[in-house]
Nucleic acid binder design. Structure first.
Length: 259
DNA sequence: ATGGCGGGCGGAGCCCGA
């Protein structure tokens, strides 16, 4: 089965691209971030017509997350129960596959703006609370996928030279990423040989995509139990070359749940 | 050092993202 994540930077602008991508890839699960859409406007019917169910949590102008799945979504969670947050940045649910439960947690992590800012403090507190939630969730669900836009490039390999030492790559942010791995999560992308300079986001400005001046900030973290079932993890760069693209492109993990 | 592009909001120009 394939599980994907895509920060679409406005679902209303990107809906045709998302539907087209689902038709082409037929992933089992797609986690979306940055809907920038009120919940009442979520186009659930368009996903139903393709055979997908959906749960979502939106708000006007900013943030917003959703999970689209071919199989039923249960035990839904909207927002982190350990963090009172008006910003819609976390949604979670279970899927059943071959009599096994997989816990899916979809996140749009804060950007942080700049080091030392109030938004950076919010980012750190948000990740502290995410860590508490994940510790609890991993105790309950051995098969767990934490995916989304982390707004952290975990390693120098994940960074175009220009961004060295700045927001998204600071030691404090990378420590937050390490803290999640320390709970028993793995960066699925790094379980496999990958091309150098593999990124998931490129600035709209200065032909950054054409120059491959990007960052790898969208991730699929999988629990210990799932590493044995993980057969691939990749980035699909194609949608970033679309007309009017999102600045992020989808990331995909493949799990063999018969193994 | 600054702004650069694109989306939302609102109906011009600013805030925000990464």
């Amino acid at each position: 089965m394939k599980i994907a994540s895509w920060n679409v930077n406005s679902l209303s602008v990107r809906i045709e691209q998302v539907i087209g991508w689902l038709k082409n890839t037929s992933v089992d699960v797609l986690c979306l971030q940055e809907l920038k859409m009120e919940s009442s406007k979520f186009p659930a019917q368009l996903f139903h017509e393709l055979g997908y169910q959906a749960i979502w949590s939106g708000q006007k102008t900013y943030n917003g997350v959703a999970i689209i799945s071919k199989t039923p979504l249960t035990v839904e969670q909207y927002n982190n129960p350990y963090y009172a947050d008006a910003q819609q940045r976390l949604i979670a649910a279970n899927i059943q596959i071959n009599d096994q439960t997989i816990r899916l947690i979809c996140v749009y992590c804060p950007n942080g703006s700049e080091l030392g800012s109030d938004k950076f403090t919010y980012k750190m507190q948000w990740f502290d609370a995410l860590n508490v939630y994940l510790k609890e969730q991993l105790n309950t669900y051995p098969n767990l996928v934490l995916t989304g836009d982390f707004n952290i490039a975990p390693d120098d390999r994940d960074v175009h030279a220009k961004y060295q030492g700045d927001i998204l790559v600071s030691p404090e942010e990378r420590q937050q990423f390490s803290n999640l791995l320390a709970l028993g999560l793995h960066d699925s992308f790094r379980l496999f040989e990958q091309e150098e300079k593999s990124f998931s986001w490129w600035d709209y400005r200065q032909f950054a995509f054409k120059r491959n001046a990007g960052l790898r900030i969208d991730h699929l973290l999988i629990s210990n139990a799932l590493t044995k079932k993980c057969t691939a993890s990749s980035i699909d760069k194609a949608p970033r070359g679309n007309e009017r693209p999102s600045d992020h492109t989808p990331v995909i993990v493949t799990l063999d749940m018969t193994a």
